[in-house]
């Protein structure tokens, strides 16, 4: 097993195979506290799978994922969330039949058990916190709207808000600006700038402009393995990366 480290997240030898196909192959990388790490790579490189493995959605075949020196691979999804890992999905993953307010309310930490949820009381504090988050994600006026009626960009913001209210130490975002208009993209970049302060972020993104704006360090994946890792400039200059990814 891995020795105790100072890293917030230490991924070592992570492997998953689906019917013999190794989607992620002996992958190792480390994320520091307060670091913003972007994973890029061509389609099918295993980027989303890496996030799925860390948050417990997909079970790994081998390796280890240590978060604050706790092994995540043995935990259930909800336990991983309680440990401090939050996940945003590629397509907006929100509760269509509930209002924006209710979406945020269910994402508020606490009363996770059945009886806790039965006894839960909507206090002024909870309402105030939800209103504060709604303000940040530009949805103050739409709190009582059914989430199904939001635009695509608004749904993305709502899901970011749902993560924000969870207040995770590690935030994992899967293509947060995909499918957004230019104006929405700009607002989202601002939003991400404020919410990434004081926490570590792991982002999967295709939009190179956006990556340049936010990344501290970039990991390039190719066929489930790391092709290159380093600063954006170093990675962009790497001939191997240009060959398989950026050159296209």
């Amino acid at each position: 097993m891995v020795a105790s480290t100072d890293y917030l997240l230490a991924v070592e030898g992570l492997t998953v195979s689906f019917d013999g196909f190794r989607a992620v192959d002996d992958l190792s990388f480390y994320v520091d506290k307060n670091e913003i790490r972007v994973i890029i790579g061509p389609n099918g490189a295993g980027k989303t799978t890496v996030l799925d493995l860390i948050c417990g959605r997909t079970k790994a075949t081998g390796g280890s994922v240590q978060f604050k020196n706790r092994e995540l691979l043995k935990m259930r999804e909800d336990q991983i969330v309680h440990a401090g890992v939050g996940r945003k999905f590629q397509t907006p993953s929100i509760y269509d039949d509930l209002t924006v307010f209710e979406n945020l309310e269910l994402s508020t930490p606490g009363s996770y058990t059945v009886f806790g949820a039965l006894a839960f009381k909507r206090t002024g504090e909870v309402i105030a916190r939800i209103e504060e988050i709604a303000e940040m994600i530009f949805l103050s006026d739409l709190l009582d709207q059914k989430a199904a009626l939001l635009s695509h960009g608004q749904k993305q913001w709502l899901e970011i808000g749902m993560l924000l209210i969870q207040d995770p130490e590690l935030l994992m975002l899967d293509e947060p600006v995909a499918g957004m208009s230019v104006a929405e993209r700009k607002k989202t970049a601002e939003l991400l700038n404020t919410i990434t302060k004081g926490r570590s972020v792991l982002v999967v993104e295709h939009d190179m402009k956006f990556v340049e704006d936010i990344a501290h360090k970039v990991t390039v994946l190719h066929q489930g393995k790391i092709l290159a890792e380093g600063s954006m400039d170093a990675v962009q200059a790497d001939p191997k990366v240009i060959e398989v990814y950026l050159g296209h």
Binding site: R57, E77, D78, S93, Y95, D96, D97, L106, Q166
Partner: peptide, 14 residues
């Protein structure tokens, strides 16, 4: 009912 996965990733044991 809407999105079981999201509920898990909001920290609940579905």
């Amino acid at each position: 009912r809407d999105r079981e996965d999201r509920v898990r990733f909001s920290g609940y044991n579905v």
